[in-house]
Design a protein around this nucleic acid. Structure first.
Lengths: 261, 261
DNA sequence: CCCTGTGAACTCATTCACAGCC
DNA sequence: GGCTGTGAATGAGTTCACAGGG
């Protein structure tokens, strides 16, 4: 932002904040619903409510895209749908390959929300030779050996990894080598990729752990409110054991059996 | 932190930043791997690399938990595993209910990473009467009619929603009414919940759209680097149509057929 | 008036850089 | 000397509050 409109081409150029980008799909979904109900116009307040954000944030977000609203009126639904779709790159077709056709991979292949919105499952790939040829969601599974060819032949630039964690990095490397530059990773692994490749991750167990953290806090506060001393994770202190004053682990090494695996 | 140790109980109290909480599971995973390899000690640098963050961030994160490291040496792996587990509330058992046993729900029920780490699938619930009794991942599916009882009987406080979008809000309401205070939502819907209830969402289609945005940018930049005029989404401007100067949609209403559904 | 668009203030998060301790 | 712990500096994101066009 800064002092004055610097040297920009004509409209506003690059640099939509990442946080804004992450919300555009949300707005788009809300707008699409309005569009289906043939609502012509919507205010920032209404749309914000539908998308689950506050209206100031929404207006600021849209201001990064340009001035697409009408003061005193609101936003034209169809027009905004188009502008956001274009901004997100959904006016073109994105062939996607899913690698690792287990329970999750198959579920994703069958997932409807995939096909709509510019994404198309172009290939299913698995390392199990026995699966090769089996149709999943109407698409024949292909073997990992052909990964390179499959990616190039279909012009895939977005790959989805649903392999077991042990295979994820290797699959990732092969995808990248074959030309994929965006990866959606469902395996619970940290992937390393070269510059220029985007990785996003979806991790069930991380989400649950974050919920558990807050859940535990709630339990603690509730108990505190009850007047009881509570099991507040912080007050609970007085560590069950600690490394010996100036050493490694402490030979007494008694620690609650935590973490199954 | 701050000028002086203010009036805190003894250790450091509440208020771990949300961003830090979201990374703790990542650290825990990396530490667990080290623990399995019987590595006794790790430096912030090494651990940060394994978790895919930089070391300054990691040290700052850990500083919110307390001073669990040893200067000149690093962190005791087992001890840190325990401290983070405790902080995240993983030293206790969290019974989880999954509502909506379609492809995705079933895949999650079968997902291994679920069972480990303190979470236990306590119930599977579906609205289809035909599914009632069918075992999925070794657990009999129960009918939505009994949702209330199932939640209370099992002491479930974390619910996972994998229903179609249309049913999600209703299921959410019922879960909350039954006592659930944390929800992990896989349905592409914005859920509204009362204060005190946490919702986290996992949304495939949003993730893909974010990737598409960056992917499109890459394509534009690459073309620009090639010297060609490129299809930079911004330069592309000169909108294909726009609401008439002072009115609604514009009667010419010609808009590219975007958005399948 | 109504509602958008946006500077300015503020809050939250990351990074720097170094003091403090082993 | 090496590595943690943390104030201080910087940057990103959100919210405020109001100017400005319909």
């Amino acid at each position: 932002m800064a002092t004055g409109r610097t040297h920009r081409p004509a409209t506003r150029s690059r640099g939509i904040p990442e946080a804004t980008v992450a919300r555009l799909p949300l707005y788009l979904r809300a707008l699409t619903a309005l569009s289906e109900r043939s609502v012509p116009t919507v205010s920032s307040e209404e749309l914000a409510a539908a998308a689950g954000v506050n209206s100031a944030k929404l207006r600021k977000d849209f201001s990064y895209l340009g001035s697409y609203g009408t003061r005193g009126v609101g936003y034209d639904v169809e027009y905004l749908v188009y502008q956001i779709s274009r901004e997100l790159g959904l006016t073109q077709d994105w062939p996607v390959a899913i690698v690792g056709i287990g329970n999750l991979g198959a579920a994703l292949a069958n997932y409807g929300g995939f096909a709509s919105r510019g994404f198309r499952v172009a290939a299913l790939i698995d390392a199990d030779p026995a699966m090769a040829g089996t149709p999943v969601a109407g698409i024949a599974v292909q073997h990992t050996d052909d990964l390179d060819r499959i990616i190039s032949d279909n012009g895939v630039s977005i790959g989805v990894i649903t392999t077991p964690p042990g295979a994820a990095q290797q699959v990732c490397d092969r995808l990248v080598a074959a030309g994929v530059t965006s990866i959606l990773n469902f395996a619970p692994t940290v992937l390393s990729v070269p510059d220029g490749v985007d990785v996003r991750k979806v991790d069930l167990s991380i989400e649950l752990q974050i919920l558990a953290f807050h859940e535990q806090r709630k339990a603690g506060e509730e108990a505190a409110a009850d007047g009881r001393t509570a099991v507040d994770p912080d007050t609970e202190e007085a560590p069950p054991m600690r490394a010996t004053p100036a050493g490694r682990k402490g030979p007494d090494g008694d620690m609650p059996a935590v973490m199954p695996a």
